[in-house]
Amino acid sequence: MRAQAVLLRAAALLLLVAFVARPQLFAFAFEPLTANNASAIYDQGSLLALTLSHLRTVFLATLASSVLAVTLGVFVTRPFGQEFLPLSRSLVNIGQTFPPVAVLAIAVPLVGFGEKPTFIALFLYGLLPIFENTLTGLADVEPQTLEAAKGMGMNARQRLIQVELPLALPVILAGIRLSVIISLGTATIGSTVAAKGLGEVIIAGLQSNNVAFILQGGLVVALLAVLIHGGLAAVERAVARRLGRPAGAATSQPS
C-alpha cells in the first residue's frame, strides 16, 4: 500500500516535470479539446517560467507568513502578550471569513498591479491557518510536561525552545501545509491582476475560449498541490514519529 503510494507520487512528479519542461510532447492529448485550429499548448510564454514564478511567489509569501504567524502565536501565549490572546483568537475567526479575492482586489489600488498585491493577499491569508495551529499546538502541550521541565530547572525561554515548540511542531507544520495549499490556488487568481503565474494560462484559456489552456493550467496547479501536500504530510509524519506520537495526529481541517 505505502510502496504503491510512493510510486504513484513519483509518477505524478515525473509527469509534471516532463509536461512543464516539454509541453509540446503532450500536444496530442490536448488537441481534441481545441476548435478552429487554436494551439493546443499554451504558447504565449514558457510554462516552466510561469510554474517557477508561481512557486516562488507562494514560497516567499508562506515563508513570510510562517515567520510572523509563529512569532505572534508565541507572543500571545506568553504572560506579557496574554492581553492580546482573546482578540487574536477572534481575529483568526474573522479573517477566515474574508474571501481571498477580496483581499487581492483591495490590495491592487494600494500597491498597483503585478506580483505585489498577490504577495500581500497570500501573505495575509496564509497567516491565519499557521497562527491558529501555532496556538492549538502550544495549548495542547500538557501542563504536566511543562511542570516537569520547570522542575528540571529550565527557564521560560528554554522551556519554549526545547519543550513547547518541538512538541507543537507537527501541528504548526500542518498549518503551514494548509496555508501552502490555499496559496497555490489563490495565486492563480493573482493573474487577474497581472501577476506572473499559472493563472495566466487559465485566464488566456477563458478569454480565448480554449479549454485546452484552462485544463493545462489547472492540471499543473492541481498536481503541484497534490505533490506538495503529500511531501509536507510526509515531513509531518516524520516529525511526529520522532516525538513518539501516532502519525497523522495533526489535522488539516481549518476548524
Binding site: 490556488g185 492563480t188 487568481i189 487559465i202 477563458l206 489547472g218 496547479v221 492541481a222
Partner: peptide, 8 residues
C-alpha cells in the same frame, strides 16, 4: 479541493 477555483 486542490484544483484552483478558476481552473475548476
Amino acid at each position: 479541493q486542490t484544483i484552483p477555483s478558476i481552473a475548476l
